[in-house]
Amino acid sequence: MLFLQLLLNGLQTGAIYALTAAGFALIFGATRIFHFAHGTAFTLAGYAYLFAWRAGWPGWVGALIAVAVATLFGMAMERFVYRPIQRHEGSFFTVFVAAFGVGIVVQNLVGMFAGRGLATVDTRLSFATEVMPEIFVAPILWIAIATAAVLFAALTVFLTRTHAGVALRALAQNPDLIRTYGLSANGISVLAFAIGSALAAPAAIVTAMTSGLNEAIGHHVMLISIAATIVGGIGSLRGAALAGLMLGVAESLALQFVDTQWAEAVSFLALFAFILFRPSGIFGVAMAR
């Protein structure tokens, strides 16, 4: 029974991880930019939803605002931070440090304007009821899973059936193709950031309702996204999403076997082992070394 309960808990967390990881993987796969500020987009989206909720606006308005805020932030990062650096053939870590700085700035601004400490969106959606003996499930679980599934379906259609989507996938390997379609590499890059960041918004909203928000909330999600992107295999959205889901489930199921304090280490140990023994990831093309 405990196993089933932990599995369900894990799926809820996993859906959040899968969405953010997919966003990160999309951006990284297309632009090769290690978007360390992805967690910041997550934080901003969560607080945007929180403010809309506090103002008494309906949920869908809040969700739209959250998506808009995350998207705009991603696009602004691409335009004003990453692009100037990339012009100078900035190395991988230059981007990393710049994004890290942005993360610090936003985290403290959020603290100043939204108040410090934990803030939650109070809703019955996160309240679990006993559906079977010993099994507690909250409506938010189904919402999280359904949202993730719908978004992945839509994303798959977009990436395979539209010119922009194909160009997005081609950006990293075959920039010529983009020109053939009559699109600009810069435009596609912005698109990648817009879509990738938007994917963080639903995850942030679910987090605001369940475990709550603080200024530094994006940090952990960001680490998980990196881990999932690598475990899933760089360049594979499917892999990243699946790996995100698995990390969420593993973190929860680990409690069946080990003491509670080791749960997080289990995920990262898995990451470490994965890199050592199967560096190409679950779906990745072998590209180690």
Binding site: L6, N9, F136, S211, E251, S252, D259, T260, Q261
Partner: peptide, 20 residues
């Protein structure tokens, strides 16, 4: 008694263990 890391944020799984 359930020890949790300082940075832990998700307590659904811990709650399941506590209920037991």
């Amino acid at each position: 008694s359930f020890s949790v890391p300082r940075a832990a944020q998700q307590f659904g799984p811990v709650a399941a263990r506590v209920r037991q």
